[in-house]
Nucleic acid binder design. Structure first.
Lengths: 201, 201
DNA sequence: CTTAACCCTTAATCTATATTAAGGGTATTT
DNA sequence: AAATACCCTTAATATAGATTAAGGGTTAAG
């Protein structure tokens, strides 16, 4: 069973997160924090599984998640990682209430703060600042994703690996190579080869 | 030279576009339409070239555009197409005022309506409904892009082609194969082979 | 403490897709 | 009407990256 209760403790981080956009007024802070649900998630536990409808927008307070799809042959393909102070959810499934094609799984023991779709809508309808802040948040995510797609289709595996190292230096040591390979779109064996060649030079 | 003047003619389409989200009040309509610039774009003319900072958010009134990057070997990779009633721009470059890595080029003679960054900011600050509407617009684009990335990394070229046909049946006949190949991430030669095999079955 | 479940690497073979080359067809442009 | 620039296809050869297999190392669980 999942331990879930209204968050009462560590809300500083998420408030600071919003302060980097348009900072929230006291009333908005209260509206937000009173709707957040805190959950502790164990390693290998799922926030979302293929076929389920994604029910919440998730802020990662601590820990690390991967979001991935599984192809016909059963191979996993990582679309994104999310560590502390990032958001993760299958927005398509959440908004359109359709079964997801994706899994979201904890790579490390984690703590998250979640908003249900209803809570999100409440915030959007009553406090326009959330429209603004989430517009900017998703714009930033769109930019990242587009960059990633461009890399994926136009760069070699070696280049993609080097970009990954530049963009996420912390993750290189934190994640198992096998997860990075899945994100880069290569097999772990080939990533191993790439690393080796890189090292030789 | 580019012909550019304040739009006075066909604004129905873009107003209807917003009506599909949260419909605009008269005042908001006026605020929007008075800031739109209409431009007629010839085939092969660029809205954006690599190295330039993207200056506007563009609504396609009629015609068709491609947005693409060029790799080290000079090969083009199409990230997106935009036809009538769609938006196109390099959001990263526009927002962060950084040189773009992309080109946006007309595939057909086209008419667009453009908003400058300043106009967009004006609308966002004075009419919160634009925050809402553009939040939803970009969410939809994010969903599309994520789906595309998943396909790109987890499906075979044949599957990607079949998905393309299902998702954009109008475009299959409207665009040259060579552009579709670039979007799918294969060479025109290989796409030709795929089509051939598909037809045989 | 032991066993199982992961994780990483190396190396041989294989495959989906790229590259090169060539010919014929169709639009644009002059 | 000719010339030029595109566009599409076929086929031979080449290659980035996959697959299979095997061995050793580390971490987690019983």
């Amino acid at each position: 069973m999942i331990i879930a209760h209204k968050a009462t403790i560590i809300l500083e981080n998420i408030i600071n997160h919003f302060n980097r956009y348009l900072p929230l007024e006291e009333e908005e802070k209260l509206a937000l924090t009173s709707r957040l649900t805190e959950r502790k998630i164990k390693r290998r536990q799922f926030l979302l599984q293929e076929g389920d409808v994604c029910k919440s927008f998730t802020y990662v307070q601590s820990g690390c998640f991967k979001m991935y799809g599984v192809d016909d042959k059963g191979v996993e393909h990582n679309l994104a990682f999310a560590v502390e102070d990032d958001w993760i959810s299958d927005i398509g499934s959440l908004h359109k209430e359709q079964p997801s094609k994706l899994f979201i799984e904890a790579i490390e023991p984690s703590v998250v703060l979640q908003l249900s779709k209803g809570d999100l809508w409440y915030l959007y309808s009553n406090y326009p600042k959330f429209d603004r802040n989430f517009r900017v948040i998703i714009e930033d995510k769109y930019i990242e994703l587009q960059d990633r797609l461009l890399q994926t289709v136009s760069a070699t595996a070696l280049n993609r690996y080097e970009s990954f190292i530049n963009q996420y230096p912390q993750l290189v040591n934190r994640l198992p190579s096998t997860q990075i390979a899945s994100y880069l779109g290569v097999t772990p064996e080939f990533l191993s080869k790439i690393k080796n060649e890189r090292f030789k030079k």
